[in-house]
Each structure stands twice: as structure tokens, then as C-alpha cells.
Design a protein around this nucleic acid. Structure first.
Lengths: 117, 117, 117, 117
DNA sequence: GTGGTCTAGACCACG
DNA sequence: GTGGTCTAGACCACC
């Protein structure tokens, strides 16, 4: 955590959890630790964890049941694919915009990406 | 200029000017309008324009001389290429990082970029 | 802080902080006071402190994280030495240039420096 | 001229002329070109040349006689030495101050100067 | 008039 | 309350 002082903490948490759900490391129905535990482990206040939880819930990745705990949602593959698709499109749009400002062709851009991948 | 955008105004100005220098629309030695004029045209305070000026100056794109005005720097093509290269690498690193978090392969990523380009 | 000095306030702040980091008075990870507090103590507006912060951040001395605070960067000794080296070279170049304009020999120059040191 | 956008033009002119007088390239009694000629040659407005002339006159390097022209003053060697001495001391004081802020020893400083000289 | 520096406010996202 | 961004003024040295 905290490796990038630019990106908000709640965003880093969101990415971390959602990645694990998408990749399958976290399976449907699995119970997540209480936010206070996570906050302790990450050496972070409860607030950003709470904020990440809210967005993960809203985006259908988890189900937070007050008083009972938080569970990985039983998301269908289509749902996940849909979410990935939307996010990827946003990412692509942003990247293309910046690349064009630099005068990069599509081939140039892919070349740079290939090196970093 | 989008005042409601997420990206700060000074960043939008920076991109706009640097793009024009990179693409050759603004040629070496050309005098830029005074920051107050630009601020007026963009319906913006002097501060963000000044901030863009500082970064453009530091990055070698322009030369701001008090009492004389601001001029497009006489940068060699290598220098510009160098700058573009650095910025492109940063962009690629960021993009790849996010793409991996989504579980996208390099081919997937390029596909999305192709559509947006 | 000398408000009547020729050197800008933000520059004086920059020097003061960077010196303390270089000398080891401020250790890696230490939290710096909020810019508003510093501004109050120095009887100065927030702006020059902010300007110093930006430069210190860009030069790798500190890490300013919105909402969290500002911390002394965990810079390696090589990195600091590198920075010192660059700055010292610039200083030397400037000084030598002026000394040559005065017709001073290297020995003369060192003599004057010895007296002031 | 204009090589350093930081130092004011009048300062660059002052240094250039005073150096030539100190070094003996410009000898006592020699007539300097009219300021408008100099301004033309340097691609500069008359104002900074005028300002440099005033300071050179005040510091005893030249004698500007209205309507007759400007002449290199018949400065005694002691006078020049005195002037050089004062300027060198100021230079030394500034340099030492900055060097100390960097944590440089006198030996370190002289080493850097030696390389640049 | 030009950019450089500064003041004294303000709103925002974040923690 | 933290830093990030911005507004609407101001004075200065320089051209």
C-alpha cells in the first residue's frame, strides 16, 4: 500500500480486491475479514477501507451484510466480463488520448506497452 | 478547457502547449502570448497558466524571461524525442499496471486501444 | 526567513529543509508539520511554503500525500549524494564563471572562500 | 547575450564591459560606442544598456559625458583592485553560504571549483 | 507591458 | 485536518 502517493488509498484497496475476485483467487461466497482487521494489516485508518467496500458493493463484487460480515458475491462470468469491459474501455480511452497528445501512432503505443508488459 | 474535468486546468494547458511544440505547430523562437492574455482567453485565473509555464520551462519546452516574454525553446529533435520517450514509458507503465489488474492480456489491451484510436 | 532578502522565501524554505535532510537532522519517514502550520510559524502565506514543497517533492526529498501529510522520503544515500553532486556542480559553474569575469585565478578564489568559510 | 534568462540583461552587459576594463582589453580613455549602437548590436532595447552604463559610471569604470560620448575611466590599479576585492568577497560569501547548506567542506568545494575551472 | 513573487481568502477529495 | 487546486487581487524588477 501507499506505494503511490498519487492514487488514493481506497482506490488501491479497490483494485487489489477486485483483481483477486476477477482472477479467481477470491471465490464466490468466501468471507472477507472485517474492515478493522484489514485496516490494521494495511496500517491504514478504517475510512478508506470502508470507502473501498462501498464501491465494491455497489459494483457487485462483494455483499456487505451489516452485523454478519462481508462476502464475495456470486457474480456470473458475464457480469465480471461486463465490468472488465467497461473499465478496459475507460482505460483505453484515457491512454489513447494521452498517446495522441504525444504524437504517438497506434503501433508506437503498442510497442511501448509490449516493452513494459 | 474543461473546468469540470478531473484533470487540473494547468495540466490541460501543459498538454496543449507541449503537444503543439512536439507536433511542430509552435516553432522554436516563436513568442507565446503573455500569461495574463491566455488566462483571459481561457476564462481562468493567472495561477494555473503560471503553473503550466513553470513545468513547461522546467521540462525545456519554453523559456520564460521576466520582462521579455515567453518563447518556444530551441530544442533539438533528440531532446524532444527523449522527452516524448520518457513520458510514453510512464504512460505505458501505468496502463500496463492497470491492465494486468484487470487480467487483460497484451493482445486484449491492444484490441481495446485499437477501437478507441 | 528574511522577507527583505533577494532570494525568494520559497527558496529559503527549500534550502532549510533540504539541508536538514542531507545533514540527517530530518530522518526518513519523519512527518513534517502541515504547510499551514509552517506558514503560520514563519509569518508567511501558504503559497511560498507550497512552492518549496513542490520542488522538494519533485527532487525526491519529501513525499507529500494529500489527506495524509508530508513525510521525509526514504532516499538512499546514493540518491542524496547524487543530488548534492548536481547542485554543487551548478554552484561551482556559476561561481567559476563570475570569478573568471573578475580575473580571479583559482588560487585567488579559494583564498577568498577560505576567509569566508 | 540572453544566454541566461535568469540574469537580467543589464547585468550581463555590466559584467562584460567591466571584465574587459579589468583585464585591460579596454584601456583608459578609450571611447565606447553610443548606447544605441550597442543596443542594436546586442539585439536589445536601449533601456538595459542605459542601466548598465549608469552602474558602470557609478562604480567608476566609465565616464559618461552627455553629448560628448562615453569613455573608459582612468582608474588607478588600486581602485580596480578595490572593486574586484569587494565583488569577490560578496561572491565568496554567497558561495560559502550555499556550500554549507549542502554540507560541503572547504576542500570539497575547492575540488568542485577546480573541475569547473 | 512582461514574468516572478506573494497575500488572503476559497472549495475539493481524502483520511 | 491534510495537501491540491483555484480565485482575485497586489507589488516588484525588468524591458
Amino acid at each position: 500500500m501507499n506505494g503511490d502517493s498519487q492514487t488514493p488509498i481506497y482506490d488501491q484497496i479497490y483494485s487489489q480486491i477486485s483483481s483477486q475476485i476477477i482472477s479467481g483467487k477470491l471465490k464466490a461466497g468466501a468471507q472477507l475479514p472485517p474492515i478493522r482487521t484489514i485496516a490494521n494489516e494495511l496500517r491504514v485508518s478504517v475510512i478508506p477501507v470502508k470507502m473501498a467496500w462501498e464501491r465494491l458493493d455497489k459494483d457487485g463484487f462483494i455483499i456487505a451484510a451489516a452485523g454478519r460480515g462481508t462476502f464475495v458475491a456470486d457474480v456470473s462470468k458475464e457480469h465480471i466480463q461486463n465490468k472488465v469491459d467497461t473499465t478496459a474501455q475507460e482505460l483505453a480511452r484515457e491512454t489513447v488520448k494521452k498517446a495522441k497528445a504525444l504524437g504517438l501512432s497506434l503501433a508506437d503505443l503498442c510497442e511501448y506497452l509490449k516493452k513494459e508488459y
